[in-house]
Design a protein around this nucleic acid. Structure first.
Length: 619
DNA sequence: ACGACGCGCCAC
DNA sequence: AAACGTGGCGCGTCGT
């Protein structure tokens, strides 16, 4: 048995690495005793992050309490598998930092271990940390990574067990990308750090419990987030079918398109369309002039899509020629080349890179990412596929014999606002099934309101949700500033509760140390200089919890297996073609409920095999 | 080789 | 009095 002595917060801790059967028996004796005492820290080390890629391997499984960490060398197989599996099966409760990752790894690489099995005995310290403070480091928070949390709660000098290893990798001529797979299993720093992680999880859990209790965060909320995380992890495991042939073909098409337009750019001396400085100089040299507001945050001349479209005499939205000036051929070539290049690197290439051996994509779902609890989806970011053109979404498909169903909440953020702020007339309009923005326009402008009036009211409604002002709303709706200002004043007269609610929220946030509280009890930290944003946080957060509740409803209705992606106010599913209408109805039902007297409703759209079919694709 | 950051663009 | 919100991520540049 290898034994490493270390100290955490001034207390001695030990990391033990069983090397023989007898060593494993000692581990087992410890485990049984520790398991009776309480939850056990659990972690895994693997060859990287691409859990579903063909060569992926689980290397070690670690268990620990506050003082002892055990590294089970899974990679050695045999008895090591047997004891790790026995512990995973036998353990009553595990503390894991960022459990969905370890669930996915164990589900795929440890026989008999499933997300379902592990989830019911998991405490995720990352979820708990996010409920204490969801802010990322760049937002002034601690973030929810193990290192900063350990530094804050346990020991400022605790090692960065992930980060510090990259220095070790370098000394071994490995990189961050190759180190996790390439480092020798018996490397002492690797083993020590592997063994410390479950000790960290165990210690963090205690501290976070104390903090959650002190902050009066509801235990029910903690439990709810664990359920959502499990549902999202199961969705991730299922993944989505990639139309590999189509994607390859599209990738090639985009590549040649990019190449062609790059060649055109080269004629004007632009060697790289992704280097803004180059574009700036070339366009300046052609006599292009920027307006005073076309500057970046640091004061440089912008060369973004809007500016390029203006130079190319194209409509920003439709891409159609405007006929207002002589189009700049370079600007046009830049637009086309950048689009093709970006779509390739962000989408088609990534799809082909990360797909598993069965041609499925398992995007990683972070069920509680944003400050408001909103989810995010990465590798690849399937929440951000272009919607104006079907070609990218066309790559993703329902399972064989199935079709895609996309179910959206109807104007969920406006409805949530109506519910939270108890906006009397808005609630009536929604309950009566009226077109909300038209209803508002009628109140503001009278019976003879125009389409443009409705548009302005819609814009003002969104500005209420986002906290925007008249100037921004005017820019976005294209309406004159004075009109928007008048509409805003009238809006406040029609729905006076919104302003009152917003003021109340802001006052409460001030009094509560710049933290708002959502309807589900979620803490919503606000920036001191942007307290007004608390209204948006409350609305966005409640809308997110409508999605969360829907996911739970969908599971209870036996529909979890059909779910593919959560996209803020939408759930994407794959259902048998023959019964698609019934499934659509069932999904709608799960996403329909009452929120404080306001109906939250959803509408399902049944497509064909590809996701793109809902955006105009043929198949 | 890598992290931070600027810039830009995709979504809801 | 006025204040648009939340993310992911690729690429280039710069500094270490």
């Amino acid at each position: 048995m290898k034994v490493f002595n270390y100290a955490i917060a001034g207390e001695p801790v030990q990391v033990k690495v069983p090397e023989s059967y007898d060593d494993l028996l000692m581990f087992w004796a410890w485990f049984v005793e520790a398991d009776n005492r309480g939850p056990i820290g659990l972690d895994t080390e693997t060859t990287g992050l691409d859990v579903y890629s063909p060569g992926y391997k689980l290397r070690t499984v670690q268990f620990g309490d506050r003082h002892t960490g055990w590294v089970i060398l899974w990679e050695l197989g045999g008895y090591f598998h047997e004891f790790a599996l026995r512990a995973l099966r036998h353990g009553k409760k595990f503390q894991i930092h960022n459990a969905p990752f370890d669930w996915a790894v164990l589900d795929r690489h440890a026989p008999g271990m499933s997300i379902e099995l592990l989830a019911q005995k998991t405490i995720d310290t990352r979820l708990k940390a996010g409920l204490v403070d969801p802010r990322q480091p760049q937002e002034g928070g601690r973030g929810t990574a193990l290192k900063p949390l350990m530094a804050w709660y346990v020991d400022p000098k605790a090692p960065d067990t992930q980060g510090d290893l990259t220095a070790v990798f370098r000394s071994l001529k490995l990189t961050k990308a190759t180190g996790w797979a390439g480092i020798d299993l018996m490397h002492p720093t690797y083993l020590l750090y592997a063994g410390l992680d479950p000790i960290f999880a165990a210690r963090l859990d205690t501290c976070l419990d104390r903090e959650l209790d002190m902050l009066e965060v509801r235990p029910r909320l903690v439990q709810y987030e664990h359920e959502i995380a499990r549902i999202c992890a199961i969705m991730q495991r299922k993944g989505m079918v990639l139309d590999v042939d189509y994607t390859r073909e599209l990738d090639e098409r985009l590549a040649s398109e990019a190449l062609m337009h790059e060649a055109a750019c080269l004629r004007y001396g632009v060697t790289n369309v992704n280097a803004p400085a180059q574009l700036r100089e070339a366009l300046k040299g052609m006599g292009e002039v920027w307006s005073a507001d076309e500057l970046t945050a640091t004061g440089a001349l912008k060369v973004d899509k809007a500016v390029l479209h203006r130079f190319a005499d194209l409509d920003f939205q439709t891409g159609k020629p405007l006929g207002t000036r002589k189009p700049n051929p370079l600007a046009e070539a830049i637009i086309k080349s950048k689009r093709a290049g970006k779509w390739r690197s962000a989408y088609t290439q990534t799809f082909l890179d990360v797909m598993d051996s069965d041609g499925r994509l398992h995007s990683f779902v972070n069920s509680m990412q944003a400050r408001t609890g909103r989810m995010s989806i990465t590798r690849p970011a399937l929440q951000t596929l272009p919607s104006g053109d079907a070609m990218i979404r066309r790559c993703l498909m329902a399972d064989e014999g199935e079709v895609v169903v996309s179910t959206d909440f109807a104007a969920v953020e406006m409805r949530v606002l109506a519910a939270l702020a108890d906006v009397k007339r808005m609630k009536e309009a929604i309950t009566n099934g009226e077109d909300l923005h038209a209803f508002t326009a009628r109140q503001v402008y009278g019976e003879g309101f125009t389409k443009q009036h409705r548009k302005v009211c819609k814009g003002v409604g969104f500005s209420k949700v986002y906290g925007g002002g008249a100037a921004t709303t005017a820019r976005q709706t294209g309406a004159p500033l004075a009109d928007v200002q008048r509409a805003m004043t009238a809006y406040d007269r029609v729905y006076p509760e919104i302003r009152r609610y917003s003021n109340r929220l802001q006052r409460q946030a001030y009094d509560n140390g710049f933290v708002g509280v959502s309807i589900t009890g979620r803490r919503l930290p606000v920036d001191r200089d942007r307290v007004y944003a608390v209204t948006n946080y409350a609305v966005q957060s409640a809308a997110r919890d409508c999605l969360g509740q829907s996911l739970i409803n969908l599971e209870n209705a036996g529909l979890l297996d059909t779910l593919r992606l959560p996209i803020h106010d939408e759930v994407l599913a794959s259902v048998p073609k023959a019964e698609s209408a019934d499934y659509a109805k069932a999904i709608e039902k799960c996403m329909t409920f009452d929120l404080m007297g306001v109906p939250i409703e959803a509408e399902a759209e049944v497509g064909k095999r590809s996701w793109g079919s809902l955006y105009g694709a043929e198949v």
